[in-house]
Simulated scan of single mutants.
Amino acid sequence: MDKLPKVLIVTPTYNEIESIHALITRLVAVKNELATKYDISLLVVDDNSPDGTARAVKERAINWISVLDRPGKGGLGPAYIAGFNWGLTQDFDYLCEIDADLSHQPEQLVHLLDALDGHDLAIGTRWMPGGSVVNWPFSRQLISRIGTGYARLALKLDLKDITSGYRAFHREVLEHIDLASINSQGYCFQIEVALRSSKDGFSIAQVPITFIERAGGVSKMSKRIVIEALWNVTKWGFGSYKYRR
């Protein structure tokens, strides 16, 4: 029997105690359902959450779930980089991103993983046929659509949801794009990873997903994160984007 692909789901957390148990419960069901196709593990990258998120995960004592403790709140990008580096050293074949607040539906993970049969990277996409958003204020939808449209235009990328944080990668993509040189802190990290992947010729699948606004906890979106993305996209789009490998 062929060896199943090893899949690592990485989810950064900071004060996600209200949703982390539900996320784990749903991922247990997904893992069981996909047991004949994929060998799934979960890594929670926790930024020393005061609400005890990391402790709650450890107390579940599930052998395929690990916690990577970080000393403090350090941003989405660095959290994912730490998680990806951990996964690459553990010889996972596929590495995935998912939000801990249940805005991404764990049951749709299979569509991202299946898309890797023929593509290097799969991006869960809200703004395409079959994709949708639920309970998201119109103002947030407008900001997301305008931001995505501007990034597509400036960076000349034909990606309909470039800031999406629901993704699946072949490990070779993450090994190639030089994670150590990425400085983006917030959701701009997603843009920069997509830009590097595209520039380096990797094939990107866009997979429709349903995005549901978080029911509990507090969004990490801030003006600083928006400004970082706007500044970097403008700089990269109208200058020359280069990085060393």
Rank of each mutant, 00 (worst) to 15 (best):
L68S: 08
E107G: 10
Q190N: 15
Q90D: 10
P50G: 07
N183R: 14
G131S: 08
G237T: 12
D69C: 05
G72H: 14
H176Q: 12
S219G: 15
F92N: 05
D91A: 11
T148A: 01
Y243H: 14
S198I: 02
V28D: 02
P12V: 10
T234C: 03
V57Q: 02
K58N: 14
T11E: 00
I182M: 13
F189K: 08
T53A: 11
P12A: 03
V133R: 03
Y14K: 09
V10Q: 10
I98R: 01
Q141R: 14
C96F: 07
V67S: 09
T25P: 01
D39K: 11
S219V: 07
L195F: 13
H176I: 04
W136K: 11
N135E: 14
E107P: 06
Y243W: 15
L112Y: 01
I9G: 07
E16W: 00
D93L: 05
D101W: 07
L157E: 01
P208H: 04
I62T: 13
I24A: 00
G77E: 09
E213N: 15
R145L: 04
P12T: 09
G83M: 09
L179W: 03
P78R: 07
L27N: 01
G124Y: 01
Y150R: 04
K220M: 09
I98A: 00
R145A: 02
